[in-house]
Design a binder for these strands. Structure first.
Lengths: 356, 356
DNA sequence: GCATCACTTGCAAGCGCTCGCATACAGAGT
DNA sequence: ACTCTGTATGCGAGCGCTTGCAAGTGATGC
C-alpha cells in the first residue's frame, strides 16, 4: 500500500541503500547528482514518505526530544514550546510534549514512556529542586537541558531567566516610587525560580539600604490565584506594606482580586507587581506591572543547546545561559500614598467616593 | 547496554517469543503462570524496558495518537489534553501533541511528521472548516476524531460542545435582565464553532421574539483581545447595544478593556458575556459571566471514541457527541440601564464621579 | 602501463520486536 | 492403546530502514 524504500529503488533502478543515502541529508554527498535526481523523481512519483519508526530502529536514534512540562495551562509554556519546536523541527527532530500536571506519579509514567520511545534528549522544565533522586531520573533516560530550572549542582546545561535582575528592576521601580515596605509573595520553597527571586528581592533591598523584614515575605505552597489571594490577605492584615510583589502573574491576579474584595485601590492604596508578563497581564484591571521574559527565545536556546549536546556527545561543558528580564511598567504601580495606608476603591460611579 | 527481549529470555530460560507474549497484556493468557512469573522476575532483575520503536515496527502499530491544536496558548486546550492523555495512556497509547500556531505551513509539516511516525489515529481540534481539501488531509494519515470542530459532512466522529444551548442560555439571561439590543462579536467565519454560535444567537433571539439586527453582529478575523477591543468599539459607536457577547473569553477580555478605556461601566453601562470560562475569567474585573464547558471531559470522550475506532476499524458509525454548556453568572452582566445608555465609570475614588 | 585514489554503488547483516505456524506434551474419550 | 483436543512453547521470517564493507569504475600520477 504505502511505498517503501525498496519500491523507490526499483523504480529508480538502484539499490535500496542508494535510495536511503540519497534521501538522507547527511549521506547525500555520497551519491552522484544523476542518481540523486533519478531517486528524487521516483520518490516523488510514488509519494514516498520515510517510515521514521524503521529509521529509528535501524539508526538507533529516534530523532525526537522529550519536553517535560509541569503545567501546560501556564501560558508561557506555549511560547516556550514554540521556540523549542521551531529549532528542533528545523533540525529534523520532533518534540514529544509531556504534561506532568505537577504530579509525581504522572511524571514517572511519562518518563518511562519517553524512555521506551528512546527519545534522544530531554528538556526539563519542572522546577522542583531538591528531589530525593535529584535530576538523575532524567539524566539516565537521555541527555538533558534544564529550562527555567536551575539545577543545584550545575552538572547539566541550563537556560534560565535572570531573576536577580528582574527582582532588582522591580525593587528599583518601587523604591523610586517611595515604597519601602514591600511585601513579597514567594513561590513554593522547592521551586528553583522561587528561591532565586527571594534572593534577588533581598539583595535589591539591601542595595537600596532598605531593611529586609522577614514578615514581609510569605511563601505559597501552590502557584495559583487562590493562594495569591490568601497570601495577600495575610500581608495586608499583618503588615504595613504599601506594595506587593507576586511570585508570578497568576498569583498576582489573586492579589488584585483580594484588594478589590477588600476595597483597597490599586495602585493608590497598594501597588502590585507580577512576574512573567502573561498575555492577559495588560487585560486585567489595573493593567499589571510585571517582568517580561522572552520565553520563546529561551525555548529556542534550550533546543539549540540540546542539539549541540546530541551532536557532540563528549562536549561536557554544561553551559548556563541567563536571559535578561525586563520590567514592564503598567498601571498597577504608583507612588506611595503619604498618610494613612489604604484608600478605599470606588465601587460604582453612582456611589459616593471615599470610605463607605 | 540496555537489556533486550533476548536477554530476558536467556535469563528466564525461555524463547524470546515467549517473553514477548508474557509481557504483552493481550497475549499473556497464552503463557503458563509458572513461566509468566519466571519471565517477570527476569525482566525486573534486568530492569527491562521494551523498545517501543521495535515493537511499533514489528506490529505495524505505533501506539501513539496525534493531537492537532491550533493554538496551545489557549488555556482550554491544556484541559483537553489532560483528558485525552488520561484515557489514551491508560490504554497504552501516548499522545503526540502538535501546535500548528494556526499556520497552514506548520500544519503541513507537522502532519507529514505524524504520518512518518505512523500515528494510529488523530484528534483534530483546528477548527477551520471549508478548507480547499476539507479534512481529507487528516483522514488519509489515520482515522480521525474531530474535537471542538464540527465537520460539515459528518463523515467522521466528532465531539463538540452544544453551542446552541450555550447561546440560548446567554440570551435567556440577558433578555431576562431586560436587554434586547445585544451585540455579538462572532468568531472568524471559517471557524466551525463561530458559525454554530451565531446560529444559536439568532435562534435564541427569535425564541424571545427579539428582532435580529445584523448590524449587531460583527465578526473578527482573528481570535484575540485586540480584535475584541476593536469590535467592541465598533459596536458601541454604531449601535445602541446594551450588552455584548464575545466569541470567547479572550476576545471578551478585549471588550472589557475597551469599555474601561471609554469609561463605560460594566455591567451598569453595558453587560458583557464571554464563552469558555477560562481560569482567569473570574479574576478580571468585573468577574466575567461566561459559558463553561467541560473541556477535560470532552478530551477524554474524544480519546475514547478514537480508541473505539482503532479497536473495531469497520465500525463506521461516525457518532457525534454533544457536550452541554452551562452559563456561569458572575458580575459582568446586570439589568439593562433604563434611560441614557452608558453610565461613566469612576476612575479613582478621589475623582468626582460622573463624566469628566 | 600499472599502482593508486576518489567516487559510486551494491551487498547483506542487523536494529529489537511480533506473530503465524509447527511442535510437543498432557489428559480425555472410546 | 490410539486418536483427538487443547494448551504451552519454540521457531523463524519478517517489519522498513541504516551502515560498514566490498567491489567496481574511471581518472591520476609516475
Amino acid at each position: 500500500m504505502r511505498a517503501r524504500l525498496e519500491d523507490v529503488a526499483r523504480l529508480a533502478n538502484v539499490h535500496p541503500a542508494t535510495v536511503s543515502r540519497a534521501l538522507n541529508e547527511r549521506t547525500r554527498n555520497l551519491v552522484s547528482q544523476e542518481t540523486l535526481d533519478r531517486v528524487r523523481k521516483a520518490a516523488e512519483e510514488l509519494n514516498y514518505l520515510p517510515n521514521s519508526v524503521a529509521r529509528s530502529l535501524a539508526s538507533a536514534r529516534s530523532y525526537s526530544i522529550g519536553v517535560i512540562i509541569g503545567d501546560l495551562a501556564v501560558p508561557l509554556f506555549a511560547q516556550m514550546l514554540r521556540g523549542i519546536d521551531d529549532i528542533a523541527s528545523a533540525a529534523g527532530y520532533s518534540t514529544l510534549i509531556v504534561d506532568t500536571n505537577n504530579d509525581r506519579e504522572r511524571e514517572i509514567t511519562h518518563l518511562r514512556n519517553l524512555e521506551a520511545r528512546r527519545v534522544d534528549g530531554l528538556i526539563v522544565t519542572t522546577s522542583t529542586v531538591g528531589d530525593p533522586d535529584g535530576s538523575s531520573r532524567f539524566t539516565k533516560v537521555a541527555p538533558v537541558v534544564n529550562l527555567l530550572r536551575a539545577s543545584e549542582l550545575a552538572s547539566e546545561p541550563e537556560v534560565i531567566s535572570n531573576d536577580d535582575l528582574g527582582m532588582h528592576q522591580i525593587i528599583d521601580h518601587l523604591v523610586e516610587l517611595g515604597h519601602s515596605r514591600i511585601g513579597l509573595i514567594a513561590g513554593p520553597p522547592m521551586v528553583s525560580t522561587a528561591k532565586a527571586r527571594v534572593r534577588g528581592y533581598r539583595a535589591a533591598l539591601l542595595d537600596h539600604n532598605v531593611p529586609v523584614d522577614e514578615d514581609l515575605v510569605v511563601a505559597v505552597d501552590h502557584i495559583d490565584a487562590a493562594q495569591g489571594r490568601k497570601a495577600a490577605g495575610h500581608l495586608i492584615e499583618t503588615t504595613d506594606c504599601t506594595a506587593i510583589v507576586g511570585f508570578n502573574d497568576l498569583v498576582t491576579f489573586g492579589v488584585l482580586k483580594e484588594l478589590r474584595e477588600r476595597n483597597i485601590d490599586c495602585p493608590r492604596g497598594i501597588s502590585v507587581v507580577g512576574y512573567s508578563d502573561v498575555p492577559t497581564a495588560d487585560l486585567v484591571y489595573p493593567p499589571l506591572t510585571t517582568v517580561a521574559v522572552d520565553h520563546y527565545a529561551m525555548g529556542a536556546e534550550a533546543a539549540r543547546m540540546l542539539l549541540r549536546v546530541l551532536d557532540e556527545p563528549e562536549h561536557r561543558s554544561a553551559p548556563s545561559v541567563q536571559f535578561p528580564a525586563r520590567l514592564v511598567i503598567r498601571e498597577s504601580t504608583g507612588p506611595r500614598n503619604i498618610g494613612s495606608r489604604p484608600p478605599i476603591a470606588a465601587r460604582h460611579p453612582s456611589e459616593s467616593p471615599g470610605p463607605d
